[in-house]
């Protein structure tokens, strides 16, 4: 049996747990805790350690889906979870007050991994009239010398999660 791992990371409330739930065949094992401080105004619960989901592939191997906690103070969990990942999905909540800064945080932190494993960015809760234009996200990545796929997605939609995995697959095929 091989260790096949996809990691979902990104800002708090971006939909990591939801995205994993959309494709996991088991109920997602989560470590949700009640938000107590300032975060409580944005979200009732948050992931304190990790989320975990599974998908059994046709050859019997298991795809393990891991979600990291979103807040920077849980950063110590990130290297633990990313270890050995086959692909990385970064989700950014467009409705947050500084979504571009959120993206920058995860790009900077996972930069070494991004250079080695296929990575895709999903922008959630996009509003046509508010928040940064999708181009601003691309411009930021270009400044960082990256050309990653960026999709505006709804983390609840299985189709949208599949789209991100399709992009990862194509990146591996044509790198």
């Amino acid at each position: 049996m091989k260790e096949i791992k996809l990691v979902f990371t990104g800002s708090m409330g971006a939909g990591k747990t939801t995205a994993i739930s959309a494709i996991s065949e088991i109920p997602v094992i989560n470590t949700d805790v009640r938000t107590i401080g300032e975060d409580a105004q944005y979200k009732k619960t948050t992931t304190a350690a990790m989320d975990y989901g599974e998908l059994t592939l046709d050859d019997g191997n298991k795809l393990r889906l891991y979600g990291t906690p979103g807040q920077e103070r849980f950063q110590y969990m990130w290297p633990i979870i990313i270890k050995g990942a086959l692909g990385l999905i970064i989700l950014v909540d467009d409705a947050n007050s500084h979504p571009l800064k959120d993206l920058a945080l995860f790009i900077n932190y996972f930069r070494d991994h991004i250079n080695k494993i296929p990575t895709v960015v999903g922008i959630t809760r996009r509003d046509l009239e508010q928040g940064p234009n999708i181009q601003e996200y691309h411009d930021y990545l270009h400044k960082e010398g990256l050309k990653l796929p960026i999709f505006s997605i709804d983390a609840r939609q299985r189709d949208n999660i599949i789209l991100m995995i399709q992009a990862l697959t194509a990146m591996v095929e044509f790198n």
Binding site: N30, T31, V33, A48, A49, M50, F74, Y76
Partner: peptide, 13 residues
């Protein structure tokens, strides 16, 4: 403090 909360939440899970 933060790590303690992660450990506790894992324990609860």
């Amino acid at each position: 403090a933060t790590m303690g909360c992660s450990i506790m939440s894992l324990g609860d899970t």
